[in-house]
Each structure stands twice: as C-alpha cells, then as structure tokens.
Design a protein around this nucleic acid. Structure first.
Lengths: 375, 375
DNA sequence: CCCCTCCGGTATATCGTTTTACCAGAGGGC
DNA sequence: GCCCTCTGGTAAAACGATATACCGGAGGGG
C-alpha cells in the first residue's frame, strides 16, 4: 500500500517521481534513494530492479527537490557587467565560459549566466539576488577592477567565489590565472619584446586598455618590466579603449612625430591590435613594413585578418577549466568540513579534484604582423 | 508559539527563512507568503510590518523552494553544440544571449547555459538532462540544422521551446527571426544586390557556409532570388567554412579564371567576409578596387578591419529579446490554461507579453568594402 | 535457550515555500 | 437576539527528494 498517491493517475506533466519508480520496483521510496545515491544497505538484486525501473520510467531525481533538501544547487553563477556590443567585440568571455562548461558539464553542474548592463549597481544586485534566492552554490568572477567591491560583497553574502585573474589588492579570494603563482605570467610579453628587439626594434610603444581593470594595468607593467630587462624604456604608452575610433586616435597620436615614431606597437588585446593595424593602414603605414604590431589573447580573429596577427597566446579554455576546478575544490572542502567532521582529511576527493589547476604561461605566437624594424 | 524551530538559533549558513520573517513581524508564515506574492487578504498595516521585517532580514524567497512548490524554475535553458574556437570566432551567439538576458533579467529569470561539444548526442543528452532534472521551464534553440531532431525530442520531453531562426521543415515550434512572418527577411540581401548593381557589378558570387544549417541555405536562396529580381544569375556559388584557410581556398577558386572572375562577392557572415577580404589581399587583389565584398550580421569586427566591411545588418540583440518574449508568452499561456481554466482569454497578460515580438528586417550598412565594378 | 548484532530494508521528519481549507470576530439585516 | 456574510488572518497539506530512526528476521556466541 505504498505510494498510492502518485502512482495511480499521473497528475501533471508526466514527469515521474521517485514514488513511481519505487512502486514499479516494488520497494520503498527510500530504497530507491539509496540506490541512486550509491548508499550501502541494498542487495544487488534489489538494486538492479530499482535501476531497471528508473531506466524504464526515464526518471532521474528532480534537481530542485535535491537542492531544497541538500542546500546544494549544482549550479555555478556568473555575472557579466558588459553591454552587448562589448561582448560581441571581444569573445574573451565566451571562450572562458566554454572552458568552464567543459569542467562543469561532466560533473552535472549547470552554469547560470547573468548578463547585466554596465551600471555597477546592476552587477551588485545580480549577485545579491543569486545569493538571496540561493540559486547557485558559488560564483566565478572575471575582470577584477581597481577598487572592486565584489569580493567583500560575496564574502558578506556567504557565497563561495573564484576569480579569474588577479585581485586588485591582496585578498584571500581564490583565484586562477595563466602562469599561476609558480609559473610565469610575464613570459609571453617578455618573448614578445625579445622577438621585437631581435628584429632590430628599439622604439616600442604600448597601447593599453581602460586602466580601471587590473589585468590591463598588470599587462602594461609586465611589458615595461620586459623592456627594462632588455635595457630599454617604452617610447610611449597610450591609454585607449576597445573601439575602432579610439584605436585610430591612439595610433594617430603615436605616429604623429616622425622623429619619435615607434617602429613597433604592442596592444592590450587582439581586438585593439586588429583595430590598430587597420588604423595604421588608414594612416598610410604598411604592417609590418612600416610598423610591427603585436596583440594579446590569441583569438581567432587574429588569423582571419591580413596580415595575420603576431600575438601573445594564453589558454583561455584551460583558464576556464581551472576556475571551475578551483570552484569544485572550494565547494568540496566546504562540504567535507560541514558534512563529515570526523573525516581523516587525507586524499580528500572533492568533485573533479584531480591535481592543482595549473595553466600554462602565456607564449608568443609569431605570425605576419611583425618584421624587421624600418630604417 | 509560532515557528519556534528556526527562529531561535540560526542553524546553518545564516540564510533566513520565511519563518524568521513571520516571527519578526509577529504574523503567521502564510501571511508573509501572501504579502510577497501580492495576494489579497492582508491589511495595509500588517503588510507593511511584513515588508519591513523582510527588508531587515534581507530575506527573499528561496528559488529552489518556490520551484519545488510551483513546478516553475524561473530559469530558461540554452544548449550550444559548439566547440570553444567556433564560439570564439563568431560572437553571434554571445550577442544573442545578451539580448535574451536583457529580457530575462528584469523578469527575474535566469539563463542556464550548457556548452557541449559538437558531437550530436552530447547535445541531445544535455536537453534530456535539462528536462529530466526539471532545471528549466523551457529552452531556447538556435541554428536549426537540416534534419534537426531537437524539436521532436523536446516535444517528447514536454519542454517548451522557442527557436531562433526558421525550422528546417514545417514544424509547429514557436520561432522568431529578423523580419518575421509579416516583415521581410530578404530585404537586406536585396538591398545588397541593388547596391552592387548600381555600382556597376554584374558578375556577383556568393560564398556560403556549411549547408547543413538552415539559415545558411536560406540566405543563399534569398541571395539568388534578389539576383533574379534584377535579371541576373550568380556567377558562382561556393560552399566554404568558417576558417581562414577555407576562405582562402574559396577565394582562390573564385578568382582563378580571369574571364569569369566575379567583381563582387557576398559572404554568409561577417567572419567569413573578413577572412575573405584578407584572402583576396593575400592573392593580390585590392578591396574594393579589384573586388567588392559584403558580409552578413554586422558584428563589430566589420568596422575594426580595413577597409571597413559593408554588410547586411540584423538586430541580434532584438532577436534575442524576441525569443525571450516568445518564451514568456509560451509559459504564460501554459500557466493560464492549466491554472485558470475559466479565464476569459482576452487580453491574457503573460509575463512580459507586450505586443508581438517583431524584429526589424535586415538592412544594408554600406561602408568601405564595396565600390565601383572594375573594368 | 537467550541475547546481541548485522542485514536489508521501511516509515517518517525535513528542506522552505505556496495554497487550500478553515476560523474568530465584527458588523448588518430582520 | 439570531443568523449570515465579510475581513484578516491562521493551520496544515502539498511539492519531490534525502537522512535518520527504527524494525523484523537471521545467525552466532555463551
């Protein structure tokens, strides 16, 4: 006489429940639960009967019910404070996401995305809602900004967080980056500078992005350091934006005075570099004959244009995977601490914990936009 | 003596529950529920007390609990069967998503994203899981392919679906597209052909994408129709892919025989057009002097390159919004039918239902990659 | 022969909401 | 004064799963 409530007439939209499975297998509801959660106390024959019943009914536990019971959503949140056109211009974000997903999907975790406008409070509201409504187990952040308040906010909200990149100031937040703590984040830019110097360039300029972003500043500094290591100083550093117009303006400034004119320019990312190449050509300069250009990120657009872009490549997919892995570790630790206080602690296998998430350092990819220094 | 279980010692992670709010306001749990759901039967003073208590505790209803109770997740799913590099090369997808989000976020809906590999069964598995685990209320699909089995699958799974684009064969699925049923989807390509013809072009070629996608075929047909309307026939139609190499190969084929050489080429999308322009230049042709080029989509990359790309512009953000709106209507109808069988039916206001989601037809944006026909 | 321990499983409380059914008191008509 | 209807609220049953407590029977030791 078990489960006569739901097994008789399928009530709503046809989705079977655990009770249906139990009835079909001729066992109790809890037996089914134990089977699907690999808990001991069920004999092999019974287990098989339950498995068959579940298969037959195409049943799997309702994510919402599990979440309610266990306080675990099996979803990771991500908030992007960017407008549609910025997002369209720079695929950085989508690539990162597909890396994250590559890790999340096999673990049966979902990615809850929120794309909000660029207004800062919209972003904060999004995080607040994510936390208050308990829709996700944690969030992954990107693009740490100077004076970023999100880490503090998330701590206050009690929401586990992983940052892709470097925090703007020392902060206990878990973070991942290409060429992590042990590896070398400056390797790519050093190789880029070396490459240029070997080609005979001495006057090298740098076009930076909006400097409220940490990685923008960091890249510029790494560039300066790389130049310094070769005994050089930057000819010029220009702060610009991600638009084509801004790139033209930046380049015009850079190329204005013939005697101080750089023979090579590095850009903060590939989008700007592509825009820069076009701007140069528009101003009558041939790349790489009159000007060598180097980008950063190694996005596909770089090899779509002519000449193909020499750029610093970082493995964004891998970076996304590392972020997801770090998140799993964070959640796994939390669960281990709360759920099994007496666990021995050694070999703690959280979901997806298989070694530290190391991402290879940035490397230089030489293509066609760099050549011997002119004159 | 109400709610003594949870109000005394905060149990777990500090998240307050409806019971805490009720206790603080000195009312019953159901009174709080009525207030937050705008249900009648609560006097203004009591309502205010409840609101204050909720505010003070920073409480809002747990999404999981609401979902469990109401069988409504307030989340929309999206599955992208694309690899990371394809995603990176074509921002189409991210722009669409930000349009969808623009509609979803204000309605407090989330977007659950699944990026799976290109293997077809991976995609199907993702949909199945989404449905079986009841994580989303519906899904939005893109890129209908020839022989697409997803519509049937989703019907069978009982998951409401909206397609961005046109189904590969007549299908009852709800769908949205730029220049919907009433408007004109061919407007952009017709304008493009007219533009070229006025510039003196008579030999016009087309480079299509992989023709297993419906929109790829549809665009080619619209191109042919537009050409036909001017009494012309395509010089040549080449099937290519989204990569730079493929673009070079396609262009080499196109420009091989001098006497039959086209003076203008349309491409299936901007990415291919940009690759095509570079390929032309690599082969020694100047754009637009020797060859005019037109793209499709109007993505930012088009104005980043030199010369700036003339292209057919469609409002992808608006298309995303329309998809979300259509989804709301779908869900609203379903809820209305099930929940209020006796409703009068006129002026049914589902969530976000404010007029039919019309997206402007594609238009031509003339920039620098088109010019007078050579010779 | 009795008690104790496993084994394989069942009954039930619980997660945090919403919703339905119900109810006390006030006010009004006759 | 009695009955009847609102008003403003309360108590309790879902929703679908999991975890804890419990339990009958088998087997073993003393």
């Amino acid at each position: 006489m078990a489960a006569q409530r739901n097994s008789g007439g399928r009530r709503r939209s046809g989705k079977p429940t655990i009770a249906d499975v139990a009835a079909l297998a001729g066992v109790s509801v809890s037996a089914v639960s134990k089977v699907v959660n690999d808990r001991p106390g069920i004999s092999p024959p019974t287990r098989q009967r339950v498995l068959d019943a579940a298969e037959k009914l195409r049943w799997s536990p309702s994510a919402t019910a599990v979440a309610l019971r266990g306080a675990r959503t099996r979803a990771i949140g991500m908030v992007a404070g960017r407008s549609a056109d910025v997002l369209a211009a720079d695929p950085h974000f989508s690539v990162l996401i597909s890396g994250i997903e590559a890790e999340l999907a096999p673990a049966d975790y979902g990615l809850l995305l929120h794309i909000v406008g660029e207004e800062p409070d919209a972003e904060e509201r999004a995080y607040r809602r994510l936390a208050e409504e308990r829709r996700v187990d944690g969030v992954i952040l990107t693009e740490s900004r100077i004076g970023d308040t999100r880490f503090e906010l998330l701590r206050q909200l009690g929401l586990p967080a992983v940052l892709v990149g470097t925090p703007w100031q020392p902060d206990p937040i878990v973070s991942v980056r290409a060429g992590g703590d042990d590896l070398d984040q400056g390797a790519g830019l050093r190789a880029a500078v070396d490459h240029l110097v070997e080609l005979g360039h001495r006057r090298i300029a740098y076009v930076s992005g909006p400097e409220d972003r940490v990685h923008t500043v960091a890249r510029r500094r790494l560039f300066e350091a790389a130049l310094d290591a070769r005994g050089l100083r930057p000819t010029r550093i220009v702060i610009s934006e991600f638009t084509a117009d801004a790139a033209v303006r930046a380049l015009r400034r850079l190329l204005a005075e013939p005697e101080r004119r750089p023979t090579a320019v590095l850009f903060a990312n590939d989008t700007m570099a592509v825009a820069g190449m076009s701007a140069a050509r528009r101003l009558g300069f041939e790349v790489p004959r009159d000007l060598s250009v180097i980008g950063y990120d190694d996005l596909p657009v770089g090899s779509l244009v002519y000449p193909r872009l020499t750029t610093v490549s970082q493995d964004l997919v891998q970076l996304g995977r590392a972020a997801a892995t770090a998140m799993f570790r964070l959640l796994g630790e939390a669960a281990g601490t709360a759920g099994e206080p007496g666990a021995d602690g050694s070999g703690a296998d959280g979901p997806g914990a298989d070694g530290p998430p190391a991402v290879r350092p940035p490397t230089l990819v030489v293509r066609e936009s760099t050549g011997p220094a002119a004159g």
